[in-house]
């Protein structure tokens, strides 16, 4: 369980304090009317994007399975939860859980056949999946069809998104640093070798896919109950949305959680600052991506994660430098 002893414990303590402190600060600023509901909306969207990018990171960055259909799971979560709360008046938390489970279930269904494919073929299959979901929604008139789903109650608050985002990051981080996560990483590194070491590669690919899909489903539920309107034609749930998530992931670095979080926040804020150039967003992203591929192909953070051992390393280098009076290293 949670370790609060020793240096690692102190780090954990500081992290928890930081997480709560940031939440407190934002709420305080909101209460003082310094942060308006417009700002809180952007912050909430940033949290939702973090959930999406981190969950795609589990599938693509850690397990190495190229997926272009992540928005499909988002769509499932968004529409299912909205239907449950609007048509059946279910409480939001129940709809939230249901959309996570439904997305995970669809993830398993899609994953079992699709994950036999590799590389480009898997990318095409997942792309197809995302489009199929969108086209199905487009043709269900009960949820508005092409007109979109309107009148969704606003249940999502900033606090809920914030803490679910923290939960998603922590759960995925803990998963990655367990034997099961290592099994996923070994598939990315060398599937043949992983098999020879007793790792059931199909099972772990599907598990990673299902967990990733589950969080995307939850993000979808949060999204639809924040925007109160969701439509299959405005790029909220289509292929471009998948690409959006993918770009954030690649810029942050495949297999790097810190990078995912930083870039998801940055790229949610950026278009807001560039309101006047909204149409040019899809021009700016590829340029960013190109520059990144040229100058920093390993992503923003490379291999370094913000963690206790990372800070300890920096700190000890610092100390060692200080100990040498002659200035050599």
């Amino acid at each position: 369980m949670l370790n609060l002893k020793g240096p690692q414990g102190r780090w954990n303590f500081f992290m928890i304090a930081g997480i709560l402190g940031l939440y407190g600060l934002i709420q305080l600023l909101a209460a003082a009317k310094i942060l308006l509901s417009y700002h809180l909306q952007i912050l909430s969207l940033a949290c939702i994007n973090i959930i999406l990018v981190v969950s795609l990171n589990l599938i693509m960055g850690f397990t190495g399975q190229f997926s272009l259909g992540h928005a499909g799971f988002l769509a499932i979560g968004a529409y299912l939860s909205a239907s449950l709360t609007v048509f059946y008046q279910l409480p939001f938390w129940l709809a939230l859980i249901a959309s996570g489970l439904a997305a995970a279930f669809v993830g398993v269904l899609i994953g079992l056949p699709a994950l036999r494919l590799r590389g480009d073929y898997l990318a095409i299959a997942t792309l197809g999946f995302g489009e199929i979901i969108r086209v199905i929604i487009l043709n269900i008139s009960a949820v508005g069809g092409p007109r979109g789903f309107t009148g969704i109650p606003r249940h999502t608050t900033f606090g809920l998104t914030y803490f679910l985002m923290i939960a998603a990051v922590v759960i995925i981080k803990n998963f990655i640093y367990s034997a099961h996560g290592r099994a996923c990483i070994s598939i990315r590194e060398d599937e043949t070798a992983a098999g020879s070491l007793g790792i059931n590669t199909t099972y772990y690919k599907v598990v990673a896919f299902a967990i990733g899909a589950m969080f995307a489903g939850v993000a979808g539920a949060l999204f639809s109950h924040y925007m109160q309107f969701i439509s299959p034609t405005t790029g909220q749930i289509g292929f471009m949305r998948s690409v959006d998530i993918l770009i954030m992931l690649v810029l942050g670095g495949l297999g790097n959680l810190t990078g995912s979080v930083v870039v998801a926040v940055f790229l949610t804020f950026l278009p807001e600052f560039l309101r006047g150039f909204a149409e040019y967003r899809m021009l700016i992203y590829p340029v960013l991506l190109l520059l990144m591929m040229l100058f920093r192909p390993e992503g923003l953070m490379g291999k370094t994660e913000l963690s206790y051992s990372y800070l300890e390393n920096i700190f000890s280098k610092f100390k060692r430098k200080g100990l040498r009076p002659d200035g050599t290293n």
Binding site: N174, S178, A179, H180, E189, A193, I199
Partner: peptide, 29 residues
């Protein structure tokens, strides 16, 4: 066929996989 990007220790811990008995949930918790 090593996992070249991972540490030497992680290479071995991946091979230990079949001896791990804890579930995904207890890994997360």
């Amino acid at each position: 066929r090593l996992f070249k990007e991972l540490s030497v220790l992680d290479n071995l811990k991946i091979a230990y996989h079949s001896n791990f008995k804890y579930s995904i949930l207890s890994g997360i918790l």
